[in-house]
């Protein structure tokens, strides 16, 4: 297996977006790309990352391999790469290590690191294709700010989607808060658009703690998609055009 990115920045951001939620995980490498799927330790949230082979500068995977890696260790290794350095990952069949090589574009500096692989029992969840009741596309910075703001007031947020707006509400010991975002188009700046596709109105409650973990992916993508159906986990997708995506799934809180 050998995969090369032109710039380390994307991989750095991917790892930063998921490491605090899942810790150790397996990267599944096939000829179509690298992916990981992992639940957090409490089995409330799930992360699914796909990095498509087309998104790499070069990519080769002769035999499918599952590489168990501590994401905190991977973050440490990637700290040694400059944002504009190229990154090459290499793994040979049956080897217990993965190699990272970072090269500056002027080629005057090359650094190499070897990370020990771990044995990780992977439990994959089957996620069915779902027709969601409401899909909200919005700037990822708006979601990050909304979740951070409401976290000051409560632990949970109720997200309610109606035809032309979406409302985020919370309450806690010191008071209550809500943020309402209205649909807005923008032909010259599509990344600032708020688009709501509603088949049925939805109202679901989620732990803000997890949403704040998810919005760590905001630096990867200008936009985010919230896919919701009543009595169903939320899917939060950060698309990376031509590269892949990060999807987070979160189980709702339900009334006792």
């Amino acid at each position: 297996f050998e995969a090369k990115w032109d710039h380390a920045s994307t991989l750095k951001k991917v790892i930063d977006a998921v490491k605090d939620l899942i810790g150790d995980t397996s990267w599944d490498c096939t000829n179509t790309g690298m992916s990981l799927q992992s639940m957090d330790s409490s089995h409330v949230a799930l992360v699914h990352v796909l990095l498509k082979s087309e998104g790499f500068e070069s990519y080769r995977c002769d035999r499918n391999v599952s590489m168990g890696i501590s994401l905190n260790s991977m973050a440490k290794v990637l700290k040694c790469a400059g944002n504009d350095d190229s990154v090459t990952l290499r793994h040979e069949s049956e080897s217990s290590v993965v190699n990272f090589a970072f090269e500056s574009h002027k080629e005057e500096r090359v650094s190499e690191f070897e990370l020990k692989l771990m044995n990780i029992d992977t439990e994959h969840l089957g996620i069915p294709e779902t027709e969601y009741d409401s899909i909200i596309k919005m700037p990822s910075a708006d979601l990050r700010r909304t979740c951070a703001d409401l976290s000051q007031f409560g632990d949970s947020v109720t997200i309610s989607c109606a035809k032309s707006d979406v409302r985020f509400e919370t309450s806690g010991d010191i008071g209550t808060g809500n943020v309402r975002l209205s649909a807005r188009g923008s032909s010259d700046k599509p990344e600032t658009e708020i688009a709501i596709e509603m088949i049925n109105p939805v109202s679901l409650t989620f732990a803000l703690k997890y949403l704040n973990f998810f919005t760590k992916a905001a630096p990867l993508s200008d936009t985010v998609k919230l896919c919701m159906s009543n009595n169903h986990p939320l899917c939060v997708e950060f698309p990376m055009p031509e590269v892949g995506y990060i999807r987070y799934y979160l189980a709702p809180k339900i009334d006792e």
Partner: peptide
């Protein structure tokens, strides 16, 4: 107060 549901209530292991 609402209780936190588990993701495995919705998705099954494969």
């Amino acid at each position: 107060t609402p209780i936190q549901n588990d993701l495995t209530e919705y998705f099954s292991m494969v």
